[in-house]
Amino acid sequence: MSHTLNIKTAGAPLRQAKKALIMVHGRGGSAQDILNLSQHLNVKDYAVLAPQALNHTWYPYSFMAPVDQNEPWLSSALEMVEETVKAALDAGIASEDIYFFGFSQGACLTLEFLTRNAQKFGGAAAIIGGVIGDKINRENYKGDFAGTPVFLATSNPDFHVPVERVYATANILREMNAEVTEKVYANFGHSINQEEIELANSIVFK
């Protein structure tokens, strides 16, 4: 089973925009749901792109499951993010002007893609997510973020994402020269709050 490239769009037309935001929805969500969130971000001049997962799920099991259990869906999902980035690059947008926003399963997928393809991006906000796998395979993560700002936020506890994995992900990002900001909310629950939006705007979407 694999995903088919299906990119929903909002904001400025891709060929006219100088910046692009790639938004990755969570399990059970949709590209349109997360595109609606872009109205609250400082991205009014950006082209906003959101790939849609087949059956609203990027991979079937927990992101903490052994990677093999989530294949071939995981590899296909990573390819969908890569193809969305390629659409922005092909439209003439430089990698340092490409931004990311992911929530929950979409945050995990975003972080896994970024750490496997580290370079100077515009920035990323990942709400409740971490790199994928029962064990962290550091050999998968290559490149240099060259100061790319990354905002990680989560609730502690969160039923899907242990806070320890968020911290471990932050450490990997820092090792790869990202400028990481973390924010942990006690007992907030599995959702996005207003402060996270404001912090994403001040740290990433300046």
Rank of each mutant, 00 (worst) to 15 (best):
138 R>W: 06
101 F>D: 05
126 A>S: 09
140 N>P: 07
128 I>L: 14
21 L>Q: 03
24 V>F: 06
34 I>S: 02
62 S>G: 14
168 A>D: 13
102 G>K: 00
120 K>W: 05
176 M>W: 05
131 V>S: 02
48 V>Y: 03
138 R>C: 09
147 G>M: 06
28 G>D: 12
179 E>C: 05
14 L>W: 06
109 L>I: 10
41 L>W: 03
114 L>D: 07
38 S>M: 05
21 L>Y: 04
110 T>W: 04
81 V>C: 08
100 F>P: 08
179 E>L: 07
73 W>F: 12
6 N>Y: 14
85 V>Q: 04
86 K>F: 02
158 D>E: 11
101 F>Y: 15
120 K>F: 03
143 G>N: 09
112 E>F: 05
173 L>R: 01
172 I>W: 04
15 R>M: 09
130 G>L: 02
159 F>A: 14
114 L>I: 14
1 M>P: 06
96 E>K: 15
156 N>D: 15
102 G>F: 04
80 M>C: 10
50 A>I: 03
8 K>R: 15
141 Y>W: 07
132 I>V: 12
143 G>S: 08
191 S>R: 13
44 K>P: 13
99 Y>R: 03
206 K>W: 04
53 A>V: 04
7 I>V: 15
180 V>R: 00
205 F>K: 00
72 P>D: 14
8 K>H: 11
196 E>Q: 14
33 D>G: 10
22 I>G: 06
205 F>T: 00
129 G>M: 04
200 A>C: 12
121 F>H: 07
123 G>P: 02
189 G>P: 04
126 A>D: 07
6 N>M: 15
159 F>G: 06
67 V>N: 03
73 W>C: 08
123 G>D: 07
206 K>A: 13
116 R>D: 00
197 I>A: 01
160 H>V: 13
106 G>S: 08
67 V>T: 06
189 G>W: 08
159 F>N: 12
153 A>C: 10
115 T>L: 12
204 V>G: 03
188 F>K: 07
1 M>Y: 12
4 T>R: 11
124 A>Y: 02
69 Q>S: 11
74 L>N: 02
197 I>L: 09
8 K>T: 03
125 A>D: 14
46 Y>A: 01
99 Y>E: 02
109 L>N: 03
117 N>P: 11
161 V>F: 13
63 F>D: 05
163 V>C: 15
168 A>S: 15
11 G>Q: 04
12 A>C: 14
178 A>C: 07
28 G>I: 06
73 W>P: 00
76 S>C: 09
34 I>Q: 07
160 H>A: 15
83 E>Y: 15
18 K>T: 13
56 H>Y: 13
39 Q>E: 05
44 K>D: 10
37 L>D: 04
131 V>T: 08
77 A>D: 01
97 D>K: 11
17 A>N: 04
27 R>M: 09
136 I>D: 07
88 A>P: 10
120 K>N: 01
187 N>Y: 12
113 F>S: 01
74 L>R: 04
197 I>W: 12
126 A>M: 10
74 L>F: 02
45 D>R: 13
177 N>Y: 11
13 P>W: 06
116 R>G: 10
204 V>Y: 00
36 N>V: 06
158 D>G: 14
119 Q>N: 10
66 P>C: 01
119 Q>C: 08
49 L>V: 10
112 E>W: 02
169 T>Y: 01
28 G>N: 10
30 S>Q: 14
133 G>M: 06
112 E>R: 02
